[in-house]
């Protein structure tokens, strides 16, 4: 194994870990604010890439229908809730906020799909379709369970995962897609070819981590989210709505997932069910970070990426075994070194 090979493997590892790190960020964020271990996080990755591929071929993506159906269910639930609580006068406003954006997006997609727009516009359109799915899924599946135990929320998340994978097969079919790269540029550093797309991946991850750090440390809203993550009841006492925080964290999660999908779509072939395994590797990273620390989770994602890349080189048949076995010593180490305290419910 020469130096050149090590360099290429390392570069491949960093590209993959950047994506795992992004997903780990989203998982920790969602878990912190809503206590949901969001198994379906990876589905946004495949939905993002597959939606873009549909737009590219000039076909109306199936995710638009999902968006409309989810909005409709959310509207029904909201109506029932408001009628039961007797707040009838709030109904028109609530329905407008739930139904208007998805309908506007669907209309926009319907108009834009046959136009074969420039790649940049299609990326924005894809984000517009996929990002609202996060808050809607929260509204439909998790908000009614907001006070349930972590285990119940996890089971709901697993159910959401299966529903989304099944719908993915229905919408996009079994064949994979590869989307066009953002740039065709190739750079050479010391005999190492680096594609412009990989640079985009690195840049996006760094920018996102920086924005998240700024947002959570400097802005009032970020601090409010952290407060919910830290102590739900306490946050409620000082006037922070946990539901709004939950909606926002799911919006961020779907945005990160969709963006990850758009970033790796040109590097690899993505299928309707690719997202789960990618999400799971992000989850390993998040576990290393104890589902709490963003920087340690990013380091964990790097570890996953590197062990994956190098074990594929030596032991390609056992790659995933190596990656997922690593979680055992990490869990052992964490359970021995960290202090335990029961969450007050």
């Amino acid at each position: 194994m020469d130096f050149q090979t090590i360099l290429i493997l390392a570069q491949d590892a960093i590209t993959n870990s950047a994506i795992y790190a992004l997903l780990a960020l989203a998982l920790i964020l969602v878990f912190g604010v809503t206590r949901v271990i969001f198994v379906a996080q990876g589905e946004f990755v495949s939905y993002g890439a597959l939606t873009l591929a549909s737009l590219q071929t000039g076909v109306m993506p199936g995710t638009v229908w999902l968006l409309l159906i989810l909005a409709f269910i959310a509207a029904c639930m909201e109506t029932a809730r408001l009628l039961v609580s007797g707040a009838r006068h709030k109904l028109p406003g609530a329905l407008a906020t739930i139904l208007a954006p998805p309908l506007a997006i669907a209309a926009l997609v319907k108009i834009c799909t046959p136009l074969h727009l420039h790649l940049g516009w299609q990326l924005i359109l894809t984000m517009l379709i996929v990002i609202p799915l996060g808050p809607l899924i929260y509204r439909v599946a998790f908000r009614p369970l907001a006070d349930a135990t972590v285990l119940v929320l996890l089971i709901a998340a697993v159910a959401v995962h299966f529903v989304l994978v099944g719908l993915g097969l229905l919408f996009f079919g079994a064949e994979g897609v590869r989307t066009p790269p953002f740039s065709d540029a190739q750079f050479t550093f010391a005999n190492l070819n680096v594609s412009g797309q990989s640079l985009c991946v690195y840049a996006t991850t760094i920018v996102f981590v920086a924005i998240m750090a700024w947002f959570f440390n400097k802005t009032l809203y970020g601090k409010a989210l952290r407060a919910v993550a830290f102590n739900r009841n306490g946050a409620r006492l000082v006037g922070i709505t946990p539901h709004l925080a939950g909606t926002f964290s799911f919006a961020l999660a779907s945005a990160i997932g969709c963006l990850s999908g758009l970033l790796i779509g040109p590097i690899t072939t993505l299928y309707y069910d690719s997202g789960f395994l990618i999400g799971l590797k992000g989850f390993v990273g998040a576990i290393v970070g104890g589902m709490a620390s963003y920087p340690i989770a990013a380091a964990g994602a790097l570890m996953v990426g590197f062990s994956e890349s190098f074990s594929s080189f030596w032991l390609s048949g056992y790659k995933d075994v190596v990656v997922f076995t690593m979680i055992i010593p990490v869990l052992l180490w964490r359970s021995l070194t960290t202090a335990h305290y029961e969450e007050e419910e």
Partner: peptide
Amino acid sequence: IEKYKRTDTSATAQVLH
């Protein structure tokens, strides 16, 4: 003989080997 999974995001390592 190298192996990879259908849903893998990268086959670079196998290709190099």
